[in-house]
Design a protein around this nucleic acid. Structure first.
Length: 268
DNA sequence: CTCCTATCCTGCGAGC
DNA sequence: TGCTCGCAGGATAGGA
């Protein structure tokens, strides 16, 4: 479900729901695990902790409390919301004193949460590449890490250790904007191509964040608001339809287990 | 190494 | 209408 723009919108909406410094009263689990078992002693450890801030790294939400980092990955169908009516697949409830109760819901259970002591080094993100909206994601970096790689651009940009936060939708959209084929080999990239990619990725992500993310089926932020960026898709989910630029057909092909959408005329 | 496949799980739309 | 099939926004272990 959620790529960087959706997670960023979830983060912002969660911050509007829970007042900074709200004290954790109780955390309830409705099953032992999601993708992984819930951390040992999760509920006990978080009681009395204040929620100081909510951050994002790649597609991870990071709840910062007095003593812990609580990481939440949404997988494909994970969502946070303020509890009003209980629903099927509500797995975790987090109550705050004089405040709301947050609920994590995840039908497919590909999501997970993990708990990390702030006094220890956080190594959960060590394998992740740079944030695509930060300065260290630039053309020189892309050129350097793409040397010798036979991998097609699509898989190269989906790989979280190259750049962290892109998923299937935004890679397809960014590649269309860059005019580069998803099947081009990474090692064939020239510096100029890398500039195009960096610029396109940034532009797509910023527009998508602004639009509240993309709602294909069921994505909503924590306040229940859907995204609107799906209305601006140039290629994703548009196979058989006319390219908005050249009027040729948008095509779809299976690539590394995922659907790739592209325009064979506009992307070389 | 590098790259692809299968896998975890539920829900839904297409096609019969 | 009801069934089966394939696919879905992610990540990763394992095999070629």
């Amino acid at each position: 479900m959620p790529e960087l723009p959706e997670v960023e919108n979830v983060r912002r909406s969660l911050k509007r729901i829970v007042p900074a410094g709200a004290r954790s009263r109780r955390l309830t689990l409705h099953r032992p695990d999601l993708r992984f078992p819930f951390p040992l002693g999760l509920s006990e450890k978080l009681v009395g902790e204040r929620l100081l801030d909510i951050h994002r790294r790649a597609k991870y939400l990071i709840f910062e409390t007095d003593r812990f980092w609580l990481l939440s990955h949404l997988g494909m169908t994970g969502s946070w919301r303020e509890l009003s009516t209980p629903a099927l697949h509500d797995h975790l409830e987090w109550e705050f004193e004089n405040g709301p109760t947050l609920v994590f819901n995840d039908p497919r259970r590909f999501g997970f949460v993990s708990l990390h002591d702030k006094s220890r080094k956080l190594d959960a993100f060590e394998a992740l590449g740079p944030e695509p909206l930060e300065e260290d994601f630039d053309a020189e970096y892309l050129l350097r890490i793409s040397r010798g790689k036979l991998q097609p651009l699509k898989s190269f940009l989906l790989d979280q250790k190259n750049v962290a936060g892109l998923g299937n939708i935004y890679v397809c959209e960014a590649l269309f904007l860059s005019g580069l084929s998803p099947f081009k080999k990474a090692r064939q990239l020239k510096l100029e191509n890398c500039r195009k990619i960096v610029k396109s990725v940034r532009k797509i992500l910023l527009s998508a964040i602004d639009a509240g993310g993309s709602t294909i089926r069921d994505y909503k932020n924590a306040e229940g608001k859907s995204g609107a960026f799906q209305n601006g898709f140039r290629v994703y989910g548009r196979d058989g339809e006319a390219c908005r630029k050249c009027r040729g057909p948008i095509r779809i092909r299976r690539q590394a287990g995922r659907s790739t959408f592209w325009c064979a005329t506009c992307q070389k």
